[in-house]
Design a protein around this nucleic acid. Structure first.
Lengths: 118, 118
DNA sequence: TTTGAATATACCTGTCAAGGAATATAAACT
DNA sequence: AGTTTATATTCCTTGACAGGTATATTCAAA
């Protein structure tokens, strides 16, 4: 049973926005309420709320309301999936040192074959 | 000497586009010329060339011209950097099982302190 | 129950990036 | 030299998305 490892673009596009990436990196140090995130990153509160919405939709963070505040915390899953995806590349690179050489040999073989046909 | 691990958004935004992600996943199986990528992914050639340009600018691929054709190949570096970045999260998660609990304790402690002040 | 603090949402605007079609470039082949 | 093949680039249009401001919502405290 062969698995073709495919990655979810939601996670990637969520992380691709610089401010959202900063938020994720901030939350790495522990959960934070919205206001504190805004303060630390010097962003306006609505901006932060909207970014957190995107991060939440992609499963990268989750909320825990405490009284007035909403505490945002990182969720491991999407980043773990990203890690699994990267694994499929590590395996390849360990396996074949120089893929270009492989390709060239393949190409050469094909052209020799074509030469026979003509 | 403490390092704050920061990630490059170029890699992430390059990968965040679905067709580019497909190209990267295709190149995982080995180097390919533009035309073959276009065929396999059912994309128009100019589209592929443009996506490859972005991937190239972000260092995710490199070109090797052979006669008429241009062979594109994956470069490990950006994905390795992504991996290093993910490492900083793995460490955190192994270290602290439930960060929210940490935060709540912290919060509680702070409020008790504030209570003293009032 | 009014006021204030924390957060989310709606609306508007400007920017940017992707796709499509046409064209330019470059190399190989006749 | 002219033609074909492979690829890159340009121009145009359109859609998505981020930021800003104003406003809605929710909860707590007075």
């Amino acid at each position: 049973m062969d698995y073709i490892q495919v990655m979810n673009t939601m996670t990637l596009s969520a992380l691709a926005e610089p401010n959202r990436l900063h938020i994720v990196e901030l939350l790495r140090d522990g959960p934070r309420p919205v206001g504190e995130i805004a303060d630390r990153l010097r962003l306006h509160q609505p901006q932060v709320s909207k970014h957190l919405r995107v991060l939440s939709d992609s499963g990268l963070v989750e909320v825990h309301p405490i009284a007035n505040r909403r505490i945002y915390r990182l969720r491991p899953q999407p980043l773990q999936e990203l890690d699994t995806w990267l694994d499929s590349f590590r395996r390849i690179w360990e396996q074949r040192f120089d893929q270009l050489d492989d390709y060239l040999l393949e190409l050469q073989a094909k052209e020799l074959t074509d030469g026979d046909k003509i």
